[in-house]
Nucleic acid binder design. Structure first.
Lengths: 367, 367
DNA sequence: TTCCTCCCAAAAAACGATTTACAGCATGAA
DNA sequence: TTCATGCTGTAAATCGTTTTTTGGGAGGAA
């Protein structure tokens, strides 16, 4: 009779009004029953619930969120799902979310700052309660343009200047420790493979390495080789290095792809890790613990990173208003059999640092 | 002056009305400008755009979707982000989504059918345009209770009885091929490590193996060992097997964790893969191609699976109404050096199948 | 000048839920 | 009996958009 007929076309989901009509009550009443603001144990409560059941009603989350203007969703932007580090991060954050009855929406930027910015924008459009960002390699997300007043926490590749809360690891400290151990074992010529220049995380790791070398004050030669990203590139760069430097003592890879590339190459070239030449990798992977000899690794406490980031973000979401907080979680050095001492060798140079660019030209530089 | 004052409290995001007010036009007009239903190049258009800019306005996606009742979101539920197979699947599906200007919301069920059902329910609540599900191990999601009329496509672990579109691989065929190759090389005693009983995918793989063995008609001994899931369990089960059967010729692992466990164990026990004993794994991983010798693997065409599933789902979303479609994408067998022939050996038994349960008791059974 | 289009922006309705205000009814106290 | 009180469910307002309807002004033809 009234204009408000509009009921339940085929193929459309039932609305709260359809349920109300069927149960013979008003929409508001249905809402109350569903959200438990009413004892459900009387005639009306049961009528509503059976109507819900019969119609297969599901509350429209978007309408609900719109009305109460809150969302219990956290947006997560990571560089790459295929990187095991981020995969574990996502998994752990999902657990955090479940425990606090939030929900995570995860997307990847594929290491592209453009996509990253777009994704953040999208998340803001969804009015997520907060955003977790593991920045892409050359991210410019911190230019604030995107986030506005949405709570924001940075992960992993953090930069103090971003002006938001951040949780990362103590890259420099643990890399220094790894270097000290290699030096203590007596290695004189050490290859340090890193990703490339100007990348926050890796710069910190390099700093740690340099610091340990400087502190050792001994006759160490460190060759810094930037390898680039896909594993084929790393293989090529490292291959050239091993061609030129067959007498290297130890290899320290500052990111996971390089570790695998180095492992394979060393096996091929009679530099088998763990016999005479040592191999240490930043980031642990399942294969490192299970091949023979197993590969010593710096283990990032991913769960802890996730937990801390989650706690920070939730505090912000709930209105906490303290100053910027930067957490640095310590890493663990997992010594495995690839960490061996060198054969006795004769070498007596002044401490020297050589930079081998990824094109292969060696640049000598003294510290 | 009117009741409709309500403007721009601190800490709240500006709405389209705030923009309208500032630009001196009506909200509807702002909407038109933003959505390009108006040439933006006149006074009004510019006024609106600058107002948008000054206020930092972002359209509220939930309100927008609610009104136009459509969402351009696809929900994706996978068992586990940390499984590289699913990680690559997510990554590729994200690319598909981007190419078709959809957006993916990915969540994991952590192999728990309960969580899986809950996640699907949630997605339906969000009125996603469609759902992609890679079912957990003992999923009961196909009981239809959840999906209703939301388009639905199953991935990877598919079951024909679910009554929805599905995209998987031809598990049986490629496993048969792998077995045929091992047999052709002259291996007489072959270990087949599988995950456990009653799991759709793995059952198909076992079927393929059995079929190839039966077809060979020769004097092959196949030992079927269920290993269970975490890698430690697999190591233990396989360790017991190798203790009892040091003369095994070849190892075929039907899922990725087992391959790594087997690789490590074989190296430890002087059964080094590629020397005398062959190793083949279902599912490729980066490490398999790069260790020495590299491990032969069955490569699932993950990108293709993703592309096909995406195409199916989009067709359904856009209203296609054909019968249930089940796609089986063929896998590729990547022969690497771990695939070798055996040393000459003396063995002359009738074809026999032995089942070693994960508890370690051997059960003899003839085919 | 009058009338008829055409066009564009303002106003209003709608999406599906929640929440507030209000009305009806019963109960209990004075 | 009357009035205050408490309870419960309906009606209506609202969230921030989009879309439809309406209205008013400009312009052209008669």
């Amino acid at each position: 009779m009234s204009v408000r007929q509009k009921s339940l076309a085929e193929g459309a989901r039932p609305s709260i009004r359809d349920v109300a009509q069927r149960a013979g009550v008003s929409p508001g009443c249905v809402s109350n029953v569903i959200n438990g603001r009413r004892k459900q144990d009387d005639a009306i409560g049961r009528a509503v619930l059976t109507a819900v059941d019969e119609l297969g009603y599901r509350r429209n989350t978007m309408a609900s969120n719109l009305r109460r203007s809150q969302s219990r969703i956290i947006g997560l932007v990571i560089p790459d799902f295929e990187n095991p580090f981020f995969a574990e991060l996502v998994a752990q954050l999902e657990r955090c979310a479940e425990a606090t009855s939030y929900r995570i929406v995860a997307t990847s930027s594929r290491e592209d700052p453009e996509i990253e910015a777009r994704e953040i924008d999208e998340l803001v459009g969804w009015r997520v309660a907060g955003i977790l960002l593991a920045p892409s390699l050359r991210s410019h997300a911190m230019n604030g343009l995107a986030s506005g007043d949405t709570p924001f926490v940075m992960l992993d590749r953090i930069s103090e200047s971003a002006g938001c809360d951040a949780v990362g690891v103590d890259n420099a400290e643990v890399c220094a420790e790894a270097m000290r151990r290699l030096i203590a074992l007596g290695h004189k010529r050490i290859l340090v493979a890193y990703l490339g220049d100007g990348i926050a995380n890796v710069s910190e790791r390099l700093d740690g390495v340099r610091q340990a070398v400087a502190a050792s004050g001994s006759d160490i030669v460190v060759d810094y080789v930037p390898t680039g990203d896909p594993i084929e590139a790393a293989r090529e760069a490292l291959g050239r290095y091993f061609d030129a430097t067959p007498d290297v003592d130890a290899v320290f890879c500052l990111f996971n792809t390089a570790t695998l590339a180095a492992y394979g190459l060393m096996q091929e070239r009679g530099l088998a890790p763990g016999e005479r030449t040592a191999l240490v990798g930043f980031d642990d992977s399942a294969w490192m613990a299970h091949v023979h000899p197993p590969v010593a690794a710096i283990v990032q406490p991913i769960r802890e990173i996730a937990d801390q980031a989650w706690a920070r973000l939730l505090a912000r979401v709930e209105g906490e208003d303290g100053p910027q907080s930067i957490e640095r979680v310590p890493c663990r050095f997992e010594a495995r059999s690839s960490l061996v001492g060198p054969a006795a060798k004769q070498q007596m140079k002044a401490p020297t640092v050589r930079v081998v660019s990824s094109e292969g030209q060696g640049v000598e530089r003294s510290t």
